[in-house]
Simulated assay, not measured.
Amino acid sequence: MLLAIDAGNTNIVFALCGEGEIRARWRIATEARRTADEYAVWLKQLLELEEIAFADVDAVIIGTVVPRALHNLSTLARRYFKVEPLVAGQGEAAWPMRLDVPEPETLGADRGLNVLAAHAGHEGDIVVVDFGTATTFDICDYTGAYKGGVIAPGINLSLDALTGKTAQLPKIAIEKPENDSVIGKTTQDQMLVGVYWGYVAMIEGLIERARKEIGRPVTVIGTGGLATLFPEGLFDAVEPDLTIRGLMLLHKEATKR
């Protein structure tokens, strides 16, 4: 059984995978100093709820954009699961697709994994929009080659900056406004309109510019926790587990080599 670990800037997702399916997934706040022993105590209880023992996990793959977390996650794999982990984009788990960018070594693991999974599930050129700490747009062509993308501030990051730098604006939770009006009546309504519909306009605008630049039909995939908040039709598909699927595919590819 495979344990796929997606370590992002805000959360780390542990997914238990078997026979090509995700059997269970758990999320914990990212803390680079959290030790392997702390992860093990937390995971042991969750695995027991699924009637899974440490010995049942025979492979671990890690995708991380937090370099400081890699050591402790790798130690977790070696000490408690008795396996040498694969690391996305490195060694045996090097990217199987062409990276058509001048600095391929700077590609974030989550972005490479998203493109890998998106190309495996869809034909043609693809734009993946991932709502994480940052909002990223990643483009791969019909051959699966990574062509580049866009990095923008994440929704919650923008909201935190807005409320943190203003004395009178309240903290609000990001959610879909009750109607389609872009004219807010209260301060909270106006903030929500600015963040929500502002992001919709940014996404629509960047996707439209990408379509024109690519010059071929494009499939747009939304992923990340906030992707489901946005209007139907903004994306051709919403796939919350895209990064984990990428880890599963990369593990399968690496073990064939």
Rank of each mutant, 00 (worst) to 15 (best):
Glu232Arg: 04
Arg23Tyr: 02
Thr255Trp: 06
Glu19Asn: 12
Ala227Tyr: 10
Thr219Lys: 13
Thr135Cys: 07
Leu157Val: 15
Gly112Ile: 14
Ala254Leu: 08
Thr136Ile: 10
His71Gln: 14
Glu84Ser: 13
Gln190Thr: 14
Leu234Cys: 12
Pro170Trp: 11
Glu31Gly: 04
Leu247Ala: 06
Asp37Phe: 06
Gly148Cys: 01
Leu234Pro: 11
Trp42Phe: 13
Asn156Trp: 00
Leu226Pro: 00
Thr219Gln: 06
Thr133Val: 06
Ala24Lys: 06
Val101Ala: 11
Gln190Met: 14
Ile207Trp: 11
Leu86Val: 08
Ile52Gly: 08
Ala120Trp: 00
Thr64Gly: 10
Met191Tyr: 10
Arg33Trp: 01
Trp42Ala: 03
Tyr196Asp: 07
Val238Asn: 06
Lys176Ile: 10
Ala59Arg: 13
Ala237Trp: 04
Phe235His: 02
Asn72Arg: 08
Thr186Pro: 07
Val238Tyr: 07
Ala69Trp: 02
Asp125Pro: 11
Arg257Lys: 15
Thr75Gly: 02
Arg33Glu: 01
Ala53Pro: 00
Asn11Glu: 03
Leu242Val: 09
Gly225Lys: 04
Gly144Ile: 10
Asn9Lys: 09
Gly63Val: 02
Arg245Pro: 00
Thr243Ile: 10
Ala227Gly: 12
Val115Gly: 05
Gly184Tyr: 02
Gly154Pro: 05
Leu162Gln: 05
Pro104Gln: 12
Gly225Tyr: 12
Asn179Lys: 09
Ser181Thr: 14
Leu16Trp: 04
Val195Ile: 15
Cys140Lys: 03
Gln90Glu: 13
Leu107Lys: 09
Glu84Gln: 12
Tyr146Arg: 15
Leu116Gly: 09
Phe235Ser: 00
Leu249Gln: 10
Val200Gly: 14
Leu3Phe: 07
Ala152Cys: 13
Phe137Asn: 00
Ile203Glu: 09
Leu3Ser: 11
Asn11Asp: 05
Thr219Trp: 03
Phe235Cys: 02
Ser158Leu: 08
Glu253Gln: 11
Ala69Thr: 04
Leu47Ile: 12
Thr143Val: 02
Gly184Asn: 08
Ile183Gly: 01
Trp42Cys: 03
Thr106Asn: 14
Ser181Phe: 07
Val60Ser: 04
Gly20Glu: 06
Asp6Arg: 06
Thr75Glu: 14
Leu234Asn: 13
Thr223Phe: 02
Thr228Lys: 13
Tyr142Leu: 07
Thr166His: 03
Leu73Arg: 09
Ala134Lys: 02
